[in-house]
Design a protein around this nucleic acid. Structure first.
Length: 497
RNA sequence: GGUCGCGUAGCCGAGUGGCUAGGCAAAGGUCUGCAAAACCUUCUACAGCGGUUCGAAUCCGCUCGCGACCUCCA
């Protein structure tokens, strides 16, 4: 097992990863709030941490990957805000939170499937863990770090900060936070404005509510992750991931809650992915600049010049290091699409390549270079998951593959074992770890046979030098999105867009 | 205002103090009936100004510009 180094947001340093339990990794990632449809920005953490689990598994770990569904809170159907939720009499006219949650959970899962993100091993819901959350809050109250006011419970941050390094994760200083002048809901109930809610009393119009020792209400914003991560991964676990925007207050609060409840910090390695920006600004609801996943896949959005395949989005995200911002543009996405096509075609060529069984390469320099490029992929991933460099190396290898096929490079230039290494490298990195899949749909046998008929007709026309007919076949097919390619050896291949 | 981060060739994006990723686009060439693809070649950048150093895009300082968080936020 190679040594993996990851950037720990808590220490702001690259650290060697060592799991609590040898051979096993506990990973918790903040999942979606299913009150609306996921957008491009949401895709980044899920693709990033899919990569993390894939890589951990690749190097031999058994991973328990917990990603929650936040389905509790103040939910409203989009465009339905105006409806008076209390006065509507008919049952079916009323906003039913579960219906909303179901709808967006399904959409989220569909998106994850299209992105080829593997399922988390446990996907707990906040509503399914109300008891655990209440228990944890009671525990924190009992330990003297939370107080109840008027049916709500708040965490006493000021007291916590006297004994623990509050703000270390997000680089926050308590005094600065106390100075911030901002009026928030429930401010007057709190002892200090920095205190955060563990439990909120539900106002009459609030549609989601549960009984608790403090009356009817709903859990605070941060407690679910603490309750569920400790339940499934233990009081201390290996990796906690999420977007950088969750550093404060979400993750900072998680640390505080868990530290009091369990007597020690919950997480050994914090990992945060950077944001996706659009025109330099973070993509987010509050900026009114989101592109939803369904819009991305359909191209149905004023900012989109075309539809983008989920694999193109995935590739585009992985072409950048996860801790850098990534700026959206049609140009960038189109470049990714072409790049991925090229790489994937090289991979397909590689699998059909006819190479000799020579044990010694005729071009030792090239053979050595290929072996180096292949071997480096592992080093790059070990260094804080540098997918950009892995992809760059695959692009270095592509001309070698295409060159052998095209005859510019002799078939025996690399040894049989190097050829096998090349195949393994593409399979391992492009498919297994980066999680790429072909863009083209699988063709049916019948379509293939039909195309062969057309290809034969064209072939015969070309043989008679009847180029008008041959070009007509090719051009008409091209119009339909089927591209014919005359190969060097006289065969004809096709790609379907 | 506070905290943190960023500024790399036409565009997107890696990056170690010296060996000048990669992709897309562009130009030229090889191949081809013509295409397309592929292959080869070319385009040598690091916001500005100082400093440290034999040597800095990479370290330090200042200036300018941008962003994130401080409020739900991936």
């Amino acid at each position: 097992m190679p040594d993996l180094y990851i950037h720990n947001s808590y220490t702001r340093k690259k650290e060697k990863f060592e799991p609590l339990t040898p051979g096993h990794v506990g990973l918790y990632v903040c999942g979606p709030t299913v009150s609306g449809e996921s957008h491009l920005g949401h895709a980044r953490p899920y693709i990033t941490f899919d990569l993390v689990t894939r890589y951990l598994k690749h190097i031999g770990y058994k991973v328990r990957y917990v990603r929650n569904i936040t389905d509790a809170g103040h939910f409203e159907e989009e465009g339905r805000e105006a409806v008076d939720k209390v006065d509507v009499k008919a049952k079916l006219e009323k906003l039913e939170p579960m219906e909303l949650v179901q709808k967006y959970t399904n959409l989220f899962h569909k998106g994850m499937y299209l992105f080829n993100c593997e399922d988390p091993t446990i996907e707990p819901t906040a509503t399914g863990h109300i008891i655990e959350q209440i228990n944890m809050i009671e525990d924190i109250i009992a330990k003297g770090y939370a107080y109840e006011v008027n049916g709500s419970v708040y965490f006493d941050v000021k007291k916590y900060a006297q004994h623990y390094p509050y703000g270390k994760l997000s680089g926050r200083v308590l005094e600065d936070l106390l100075e911030t002048t901002r009026d928030l809901d429930g401010q007057d109930e709190k002892r200090n404005k920095v205190d955060f809610a563990l439990w909120k009393k539900a106002p009459p119009e609030h549609i989601m509510r549960w009984k608790s020792p403090w009356g009817e209400g709903f859990p605070g914003w941060h407690i679910e992750c603490s309750a569920m991560s400790s339940k499934y991964l233990g009081e201390t676990f290996d990796i906690h991931g999420g977007g950088m925007d969750l550093l404060f207050p979400h993750h900072e609060s998680e640390i505080a809650q868990s530290t009091i409840a369990h007597g020690h910090p919950p997480v050994r390695y914090w990992m945060h992915n950077n944001m996706i920006t659009i025109n330099g600004k973070k993509m987010g609801k509050s900026y009114n600049n989101v592109i939803k996943l369904s819009e991305l896949f359909s191209g149905n959005h004023p900012m989109l010049e075309q539809a983008y395949h989920p694999m193109v989005i995935r590739f585009y995200i992985l072409q950048t290091h996860y801790r850098s911002t990534l700026d959206f543009s049609n140009e960038a996405l189109q470049a990714s699409e072409k790049a991925l096509r090229r790489l994937w075609e090289a991979y397909e060529v590689l699998q059909k390549l006819n190479v000799g069984t020579n044990s010694t390469p005729s071009d030792a320099a090239l053979d050595g270079q290929v072996r180096k490029w292949c071997a480096e992929c592992e080093e790059f991933m070990c260094d804080d998951l540098n997918t950009a460099k892995v992809i760059a190396n695959l692009f270095e290898l592509a001309p070698v593959i295409n060159g052998i096929k095209g005859g510019q490079i002799k078939a025996d230039a690399i040894s049989a074992s190097t050829y096998q290494l090349l195949k393994d490298t593409f399979k391992t990195w492009l498919e297994d770890v980066l999680g790429m899949k072909p863009l083209a749909v699988q063709q049916s046998n019948k379509l293939d046979q039909a195309l062969q008929v057309l290809i034969d007709i064209r072939k015969e026309a070309r043989a008679r030098k009847d180029f008008a007919t041959s070009d007509q076949v090719r051009n008409k097919l091209a119009e339909a999105g089927i591209l014919l390619k005359d190969e060097k050896d006289g065969s004809v291949s096709y790609t379907i867009e």
